[in-house]
């Protein structure tokens, strides 16, 4: 009996961890559904309650969908912090460590599950958006670029959320600490044009990371010229991801001393 004991490769380990995280998500389906329904509800509220009063120069639903997609990404990724925090609290982290599984594959597993959940949620938002009159005019390459950028954003903030999960002392605190991810789309061009905001907010709203992502998605989906904005958006995503990976590596070592 020696069918054993090649040291498992990084891909096997990360894949196994992602499989676990997805299975755990499927078994916490209530939370997943809640995080999918909230953005859809907010989209309906914005389109039907507020939309009539907001002048964006286009149909409001067309304007608002990219913002809702990011809001949705925020909701979907926030639970990563809770999952990571729960792992750190329980005995399972000792099991993984004695199996010589490092922090990065454990977090990557949760981030992978978060991306999978978010893809479902994104599909739902698009589906409902189509039903209420969203008509994008994107080219195939525009669609691919938009989805790619959204994926990059989701990956980056999921990993950021994982880092928050390592920082928080309890799953409850972790859940609370991710509020900024859900809040960040509001002071941006997600729901109303930035020009309509008070002057002192313009600087922040124009230059915060969410705005270039939203502007790029809007441009790509409506087949309008986007210039260098997608590259700025990608740079933000790469920066956030790099900081989150580095920070979580350090935090994991601190938490497991």
């Amino acid at each position: 009996m020696s069918e054993t004991l090649a040291v498992p490769g990084a891909l096997t380990v990360t894949g196994t961890m992602a499989g676990r995280a997805i299975r755990l998500s499927r078994r916490n389906i209530d939370a997943v559904i809640t995080s999918m329904m909230l953005p859809v509800m907010l989209m309906l509220i914005f389109v039907y309650f507020f939309g009539g009063a907001i002048d964006t120069g286009t149909r409001y639903v067309t304007y608002v969908v990219p913002g809702v997609l990011l809001l949705c990404a925020g909701f979907g990724s926030a639970s990563t912090a809770v999952s990571v925090s729960e792992d750190m609290k329980g005995g399972i982290i000792d099991r993984f460590r004695t199996l010589d599984v490092g922090g990065t594959p454990i977090l990557a597993g949760h981030v992978g599950a978060s991306v999978a959940r978010n893809l479902l949620a994104t599909a739902l938002v698009f589906g409902v958006a189509f039903l209420i009159g969203f008509r994008p005019s994107a080219t195939v390459s525009g669609w691919l670029a938009a989805i790619g950028l959204l994926l990059a954003f989701i990956t980056a903030i999921s990993w950021l959320s994982a880092a928050v999960g390592l920082l928080a002392r309890s799953p409850e605190a972790a859940g609370g600490a991710t509020f900024f991810m859900m809040f960040l789309p509001y002071p941006s061009s997600a729901f109303v044009p930035i020009d309509t905001m008070p002057g002192w907010l313009h600087g922040f709203a124009r230059h915060q990371p969410v705005t270039p992502v939203i502007e790029s998605l809007r441009g790509l989906l409506l087949d309008q010229p986007v210039g260098a904005t997608p590259w700025i958006a990608l740079a933000w995503c790469a920066g956030i991801l790099a900081v989150a990976v580095a920070a979580s590596g350090g935090l994991f070592r601190l938490r497991t001393r």
Binding site: T4, L5, A6, V7, P8, T12, V13, T16, G19, R20, R23, L24, R27, N28, G90, G91, I92, I93, D94, R95, F96, L99, V101
Partner: peptide, 20 residues
Amino acid sequence: AVDEMQTGAENLRMTARLSG
């Protein structure tokens, strides 16, 4: 050190995969 929300078999298969 096992996952409550996984089955016993899933826990063991996961651990075995992580062991190589």
